[in-house]
Structure formats: structure tokens, C-alpha cells
Computed example of a mutant assay.
Amino acid sequence: MPDAGRFSGKGVIVTGAARGIGEAVAERFVSEGARVLLVDVLPEVEATAARLGQPWLLQDVAAPGAGEAIAAAALGALGRIDVLVNNAGIGGSKRLEDSDDALIDRFLATNLAAVLKVTRGVLPHLPRPGGRIINVSSIFGITGYPGTTAYAVAKAGVAQFTRQLAGELAPEGILVNAVAPGLIATPMTTGHRQNALYTRLIVEGTPVERLGTPADIAGPVAFLASEDAAFVTGIVMPVDGGFLAARHGKI
């Protein structure tokens, strides 16, 4: 259950916060007392932020200077930055032979390079000790699945970035972790969830026998940002209903 005061006085940035996982993560932090800057390229971020009573920024995380722009907006609106949640990303990848240069570049720019660049822009403003960075990877950054090449490679890069940065920043008191969601019911996964083969392999193959929800991801993110995780850094936590641990026996 949320702790209404666990993040009281903290400033949090959540990218990709207009809907889906990002919206749920922002809502969780607000419910626990944080002030949150919601960042997204989608105009609906304004309505989401208004519902939560929080500031917002319309920003493409892959644009030049996005990290510095996000940091400046957060400092102006929140006064401080304690937690960065790199959630923004795109879906719809293809098999490699069906991927043109534009598709590959788009996935690597948004789902990987932007995570590095936004983090670089925000990093100077995180407290030492006490700063937290939580990245959103994917189970497809850990295990392969046909037809997701550029997406999977980018998310694997996010996982390795998490481990790399954790080692660099731990001596300064900044902890860096990631979550790796399984199949979550969000607008971005609608197409996958309408695919019969995908549903059989992923949904029916999940031991808990259900889709994940955005709230299922928000809880672990909040944990990793909290003092309960003060001795945790460099992990990529699967939040997948047991999919990576054991495929369901019905398959």
C-alpha cells in the first residue's frame, strides 16, 4: 500500500508520463507525498498532470538538449530533483530484415540514447548522497522474442547502462536501478495484445496467468526510489508475473 508521506518534500521527474506506466508511476509518487514533473511528447500530458495537480512539460526526450530542458523545468517547478524515472519509449519494432534505417535509428534514439542524454542532463542536480535513477527496460532486453529486434536491443542497452552507471555513481551516493516489465496492458501494447500468437506465447506463458497493469510497475519503481532500497543498486528487476523464471506449463 502507498505510504502517504514516504516521499514528502521530494522532487521527481517521470518521462513518458502522459499515460500507461508513466502515468501510474507519477500517480504513485504523488500519492506518497512527492512533487512530480510529468514529461511527455504527447499533448495529453497536460490533462494527466492537471488530474494529479502537478506540473508538466511537453518535450521529446530524443530532441537535442532534452535533458537540460527537463532539468531546468524540474528545478523551476519543483525546486529540487531527487528521483529521475526514465520511462519514455516507443513500441512497434520489427524483424531486422523488415527494419529500415529510419526505424532502427528511431528506436535507438528514443529508447536508448535518450535515456543516456536525459540522465546526463539531470545528473548534476541529483543530491549526493540520496539521488535515485530508475530506468524502464523490458523482459525483451533480457530474453529474445522474434520481431522486436531494434526495441529489444535498445532495452538491453538500458539494462547495461543501468549496471554501468550504478558502478560509477554508487560511491557518490546515487543509486541506479531498472525495472523490466513483462506484457503490461497499456495503449502501447494494444497491437501485441490483439495478436493471437503473441497472446499465447506471452500472456498464457506467464505463471500468474494475467496481464500486468501499470500499477504493477509503479510499486516496484517506488520501492527502488525509497530508503527501503538503500542497499540496492545496479539491478534490473523483472516485473513480469514470473515469465522469465518459468514458462507456464500449459504452453
Rank of each mutant, 00 (worst) to 15 (best):
E44I: 04
G33R: 02
V45R: 00
G53Q: 04
L52D: 04
L58F: 00
V45W: 03
E23S: 11
L42W: 14
L57V: 01
A24W: 14
A24Q: 11
I21E: 07
A50G: 15
T48I: 13
Q59L: 08
I21Y: 14
V36N: 07
L58G: 01
E32H: 15
R35V: 04
L38Q: 10
E23R: 15
E44P: 02
Q59D: 11
I21D: 04
I21N: 06
E44N: 06
A34V: 05
P43M: 10
A34S: 13
L57N: 05
T48A: 13
D40Y: 14
A50H: 15
V30D: 08
P43L: 01
L57W: 04
R35W: 09
A26F: 15
P55E: 05
W56N: 03
E27F: 09
V41W: 05
A62Q: 10
S31H: 07
Q54M: 12
V30G: 11
V45C: 01
R51S: 13
A50Y: 15
A34K: 06
E23Q: 13
L42C: 10
R35L: 04
V36H: 05
V45Q: 00
D60E: 12
G53E: 03
L37M: 05
A26N: 08
Q54S: 02
L38K: 03
L58N: 00
A49L: 03
L42N: 12
A24V: 09
I21M: 12
R28A: 06
A49I: 03
E32N: 06
V45T: 00
V30P: 04
E46S: 10
E23F: 15
G33K: 14
L52V: 00
W56K: 00
L37T: 02
E44D: 08
E23M: 12
E46V: 00
V45A: 03
L57G: 06
A34E: 06
L42D: 13
R35K: 09
R28S: 08
V61Q: 03
V61M: 11
W56E: 01
V61D: 09
E27M: 08
V25A: 09
G33A: 07
R35E: 15
E23A: 03
L42I: 04
R35D: 10
R28Q: 12
L52C: 02
A50L: 15
A34Q: 11
T48W: 04
S31F: 07
L38A: 13
V39N: 01
V41P: 08
V36F: 13
A24F: 10
V61N: 10
A49R: 05
Q54L: 05
V61P: 00
V36T: 05
V41Y: 11
R51Q: 11
E32M: 10
T48L: 06
E44A: 10
V30I: 11
R28N: 00
A50N: 13
E32A: 05
L38N: 01
E32K: 00
A26Q: 10
A49H: 01
V39M: 03
D40W: 12
L38V: 01
V45L: 02
L38I: 07
Q54G: 13
A50F: 14
G53V: 07
A24L: 08
V45D: 01
P43V: 07
V41S: 13
L57M: 12
L42A: 15
R51N: 10
T48K: 12
G22Q: 04
L52M: 08
